[in-house]
Amino acid sequence: MASPSLELQGAIVARLKAWAGLSATVNGRVYDSVPAEEKRIAETGAGWPYITVGEGDETSDDADCIDGFEISLDIDIWSRANGYPESKRISDEVRKAIKSADLALPTNALVDFRHRQTRFLRDPDGLTSHAVMTFEGFAEQP
């Protein structure tokens, strides 16, 4: 039996890589583990911006005859464009792409999935804009 959060991560990555609203800016740069900038450039023609599937947690929430899981997941947007506009545009497209429970999981059932918040930060390097998006959902395991 697969972990609901692992299946959800796979569905999110696939959706973001295929989402038309992200193709021009992100061009498939959606990662769990970020490759070196040189490799990103070689593979996609650019190193920035990119998206990472960040930290999350999976909490058991079982009921009668149902193995349920509350899932919280962060998605991060990284940009080197001047200011916050690029990270804000990308985060809006990410929200549109994955804001509902229509993400199909191979063996588990995603009952609910929603965007909770987005925070915009300037990284200490002074060059990188960073958006941290938090999503929450509920999945049932057969």
Results as ranks from 00 to 15, higher is better:
25 T>H: 08
9 Q>A: 09
3 S>E: 13
8 L>F: 01
136 E>C: 06
64 D>Y: 13
41 I>P: 02
30 V>Y: 01
78 W>E: 04
35 P>G: 02
101 A>W: 07
24 A>F: 10
124 P>M: 06
61 D>M: 08
15 R>H: 03
2 A>N: 12
59 T>H: 13
9 Q>H: 09
126 G>Y: 06
68 G>A: 05
50 Y>I: 00
42 A>R: 14
13 V>G: 11
39 K>I: 14
104 A>L: 12
100 S>C: 09
116 R>H: 08
72 S>T: 15
5 S>V: 06
83 G>D: 03
50 Y>G: 00
19 W>V: 02
17 K>V: 03
65 C>K: 15
71 I>A: 02
1 M>P: 07
65 C>G: 07
22 L>I: 01
101 A>D: 09
96 K>T: 10
119 R>M: 12
140 E>M: 12
15 R>A: 03
118 T>L: 00
97 A>R: 04
49 P>G: 00
78 W>Q: 09
108 N>S: 12
14 A>N: 15
102 D>E: 13
41 I>E: 15
50 Y>P: 00
140 E>F: 07
126 G>C: 05
89 R>K: 13
134 T>I: 10
55 E>H: 11
87 S>P: 01
36 A>H: 05
40 R>V: 05
142 P>T: 07
62 D>K: 09
134 T>H: 07
112 D>E: 15
22 L>F: 02
66 I>G: 02
15 R>V: 04
57 D>S: 08
141 Q>Y: 08
79 S>T: 11
14 A>L: 14
64 D>A: 12
127 L>D: 08
4 P>W: 00
7 E>R: 10
114 R>F: 14
99 K>N: 14
5 S>Q: 06
141 Q>S: 12
9 Q>R: 13
81 A>F: 10
138 F>V: 12
57 D>I: 05
67 D>S: 13
27 N>M: 09
28 G>H: 02
56 G>Y: 07
121 L>N: 10
58 E>A: 11
70 E>A: 12
14 A>F: 10
122 R>I: 06
124 P>R: 05
19 W>R: 09
46 A>G: 08
98 I>F: 04
78 W>L: 03
51 I>G: 01
113 F>W: 15
97 A>T: 04
118 T>S: 09
19 W>K: 10
130 H>D: 01
52 T>H: 04
28 G>W: 01
34 V>E: 07
104 A>N: 05
40 R>P: 01
127 L>C: 00
68 G>V: 07
132 V>W: 00
82 N>A: 15
12 I>F: 04
63 A>M: 12
140 E>G: 05
93 E>W: 00
